[in-house]
Write a protein that binds this DNA or RNA. Structure first.
Lengths: 154, 154
DNA sequence: CGACGAAGGTGGACGCGTCAACCATCGAGG
DNA sequence: CCTCGATGGTTGACGCGTCCACCTTCGTCG
């Protein structure tokens, strides 16, 4: 192995800024979602995934793939959401190992209450300060990194 | 309150890409750090903060501010790192409530072992795909968002 | 049909983060 | 000197994520 290639000054600044934005943005989103609707970001993600599908009913397996969650994590999180009445479980006739999850009326109400505020926060903090060119550039950058993450995955 | 201003198509793509990069980058960094050196990202951050300071010894209070960690989180994490021999606690003569944390030789060895691989990963995945202009643009974008996070903090 | 590996989902143990209560100490004001 | 609020740090309870063992069911291959 050769010498370590360290980050130069500009790269360090970029890296720091990137990490800070992630941390703070996430904290802020958590706080506001929790305060305005009692949902965690994870709850929100689950409910969004369920409303994205026609019928609002999905096999757990597929939901896990969509969210990129481990099956055990999904199982436990859904158990809590079921206990809170946000979603319901339904057995699968075709495959008796399987289970469907569907969003309840309460779940629909919760996500409909939360979504506008959440979207507004994302706009206000993230997009209202950027012009169209910057948004496109950012998308490009993220895609480059995503590709490289996949490409170098061992 | 008026109508909800939803995200347009481009913004949604940017937002998705951004969230995905965060998730995957974080997962990847965790995995590789853990595999190559047995450190978590949090361990790494603590050790970096300690080596940044001359003497490698810091008041817990100041470390907490630097890392933006709650004092309880810091206290517990340091307890674990002390148990593993990565850092040590030293009482503070001036203020008997206080405590210094210092990095041990083992801690130095761990961070020195981990840092090159970590830097290489960040370069490889993040910066090697971007040109200088993109890096500067990204920094600008992150700073805009950080400012807006502060400015709209309630 | 019967065996067997793979897939869907659950549950327990453990590590980690947050919240709130707590204790000791400090320092400013009377 | 004494009181009292603020500060530094620890601890316990709880929620969440990961890892791994486990159970059931499925589908394939003989």
């Amino acid at each position: 192995m050769g010498q370590t290639r360290w980050l130069d000054e500009e790269q360090q600044q970029a890296w720091r800024a990137w990490l800070d934005v992630n941390t703070q943005m996430f904290a802020r989103m958590s706080r506001e979602l929790q305060a305005s609707s009692g949902l965690s970001i994870q709850d929100y993600d689950v409910l969004v995934a369920l409303t994205d599908v026609t019928g609002g009913s999905v096999r757990m397996r597929d939901l896990g793939v969509a969210l990129q969650w481990e099956k055990s994590r999904l199982s436990k999180h859904l158990a809590r959401m079921i206990a809170r009445g946000l979603v319901a479980r339904r057995d699968c006739a075709d495959d008796r190992r399987g289970a469907f999850v569907e969003i309840t009326e309460e779940g629909v109400a919760a996500i409909q209450g939360a979504a506008p505020d959440h979207a507004e926060l994302v706009r206000e903090v993230f997009f209202d300060g950027l012009n169209g060119e910057q948004v496109r550039e950012l998308t490009t950058i993220c895609r480059v990194v995503l590709d490289r993450l996949d490409a170098t995955d061992r």
